[in-house]
Each structure stands twice: as C-alpha cells, then as structure tokens.
C-alpha cells in the first residue's frame, strides 16, 4: 500500500471511528459499516495494513466494536464473519472452555457485544489439543461483571452444551486465530497509547503553572518522551513480524504493546495531574480500556513469561527484529 492510499484509508477509518465514538456504543454497527466500505476486499488485498489501520483508529477513538471477532473468525476460516468468539477467560490457561470425556462442552469465556451474534465459536480443550466448537448464542448464560470498563462491551458467559448441540469446526487452528487477534489487539493498544500521548501533550502545552506551559518543564517532557519511546518500540515490533513467524511475532508484539500502553496511561495521567484523576476527563476511560485489552488473549506479563519459555525451549534467542546479516536463528 502506498503512502497516499494508506492516508486515504486512515482518514476514512478514522472518520468512521470518531463518528461512532461520538455517537456512543450501540448506536452504530462498525462491522456492518466496514463491510459497506469494502472491508472484505481490502483484507484480501492488504491483510496486514488493513488490520493495522482499523485497530489503531479504533483504539485512538476508544470505540468498542466486534471488529476483533471479524478478524478472529477470518483466521478460523469461517465464511460467516458475523460469528461471535468466546474468548478465553484471562488467566494462566490458554483456553477456559473444555470438551469433557462424555462429549459435553463446558464453556467459560468473554464475548464482545454479546447479544448480536447468532452463533458463537468456542475454543475448547479436547484431550491434548484445542478444538473450536460452534454453538448457538442461546446456549450461553451471562455472568454479571462489576464494570471496570463497561464501555468495552465485554460479557462474561458460561454454559454446558450437549454434544448434539454443537459442531466442531473442521481444520480450524485456534493458535492462528489467537495470533491474528493478538496482532489486532497490539495495534489497538498502540492506538490507545498514541491518543493518550497526544492528548497529554496537548494538555501540557495549554496548561500553565509558574507562568509558563507545563510542557516546558523537563520533568514533564521526560515522562511523555518515555511514553513515546515505548510506543515507538511497540510499533517497531509490529512492523517486524515476519510472514513465516506470525505466531511468535504477534505474541511479542502484544506483550510489548500492552506494557507500553499501560506505562503510557500512567505517565499521561501523571502529567495531567489532578484533572487526569477526574471521571469527567477522558483519560481514565483510555486507562481502563488499556487494561481490559491487555487482559484479552494474554496479558503482557503472561506473554513475557511465554517469550522466555519459548526461548528456553528453542535454546536460542528469537529471530524477531534480528539484523539482516545476523545469525539466521
């Protein structure tokens, strides 16, 4: 994609996201609007850049949509991209649903914008492997959440489904879907961080104390510079994902982006001072979304551990970001 085309898509997607963000959750169907804009064709032509642009703009505008479901469904090879995904409960295990010996499927997971999808794809442990089962939305019951980030639209669901009431998805690779999801979430975290840094920079340019803008103080500049450094690092990792190393590359990207976004949230809150600690100011909504998205499909802490384990198992350092002339490993 050339720079001009990218800018055009960024403007279109950014405009859509800002409009949806202003209208509030539930007013618009982002996924339907994307389809109308020719999203499906774009993802075939530009599978990587389309996701990058969409999720960065979604993060920047703090929009909650089912776009992630769409990306994961595509990676699962589902023709019907409107299928919902029961993401594993955040925690130490990779999947939190399971098919028991008697064939019953026990579901525990999170849905995005729960009520809209007729069918739900459930990754489930079956023996030593992970399969993906398709169930009807009606088979799930909703568990109340206390609302850390209500606007994220997460719903905690559970259910037990008899073998005759679900079907297994042929040839679905949950690991590939997870990688696609992590990559999209990493872009969204980058979008959140980028917006927070822009807003905080704007604030410290306007706000004056001691007769000069706060942004002229080095203590303030350094906090924002550190946040920006983290953002650039996260973007670099995303750009360095090799086509033949997507599983590990996406894992690293989400770890780096999650940590960078959380740090950016804290630095931006610090430099906006007491205003940043009010409900009215938007920053805490970004901080909440950052933590919520970090929790999904592996928190930065969990992924960091996974990176270490993988490197220990392989017996060499990961390839990601190696210099072209460096060791092939």
């Amino acid at each position: 994609m050339d720079a001009e085309t990218r800018e055009m898509y960024r403007k279109t997607l950014g405009g859509l996201m800002r409009r949806v963000g202003a209208e509030g959750a539930g007013e618009s169907d982002v996924v339907a609007e994307l389809r109308e804009l020719g999203w499906d064709e774009l993802t075939v032509e530009e599978p990587t850049e389309s996701v990058a642009l969409l999720f960065e703009e979604q993060g920047a505008a703090l929009v909650a949509s089912r776009a992630l479901d769409m990306v994961v469904a595509a990676a699962l090879g589902l023709d019907d991209r409107s299928v919902g995904i029961a993401y594993p409960e955040p925690g130490p295990t990779n999947v939190t649903s399971a098919i028991n010996d008697d064939g019953r499927l026990t579901i525990a997971g999170l849905l995005l914008g729960a009520s809209e999808a007729a069918e739900i794809a459930v990754p489930a442990q079956a023996g030593t492997g992970v399969v993906v089962a398709i169930v009807s939305r009606g088979a799930l019951s909703v568990v109340e959440m206390e609302g850390f980030d209500d606007a994220a639209g997460f719903t905690r669901v559970t259910g037990v489904v008899e073998a005759r009431h679900y079907r297994l998805l042929d040839g679905a690779a949950w690991a590939v879907a997870v990688a696609a999801g992590r990559r999209a979430l990493a872009h969204e975290l980058v979008g959140l961080a980028s917006h927070m840094i822009d807003r905080a920079a704007g604030y410290v340019i306007e706000r004056e104390q001691f007769g000069r803008p706060l942004g002229t103080f080095q203590a303030v500049q350094h906090r924002l510079a550190d946040a920006y450094t983290g953002l650039v690092a996260a973007r670099s990792v995303l750009a360095a994902i090799e086509p033949d190393d997507v599983l590990f590359g996406s894992l690293v990207a989400k770890a780096v982006a999650g940590r960078a976004a959380i740090r950016a949230a804290h630095s931006c809150t610090q430099v906006t001072g007491a205003i940043g600690c009010t409900w009215e100011y938007e920053l805490h909504r970004y901080l909440r979304r950052t933590h919520a998205l970090d929790a999904l499909l592996g928190s930065w802490r969990a992924l960091r551990k996974a990176i270490g384990q993988q490197m220990a198992e392989d017996g060499h350092a990961a390839r990601l970001g190696s210099a072209p002339e460096g060791p092939a490993a």
Binding site: E89, P90, P92, L110, E146, F148, F154, A292, A295, S299
Partner: peptide, 8 residues
Amino acid sequence: GPAAMLDG
C-alpha cells in the same frame, strides 16, 4: 491475574 482487571 488479568481477569481481576475486568472487575472488582
């Protein structure tokens, strides 16, 4: 753990 970040 990350689940605790979603509520409570």
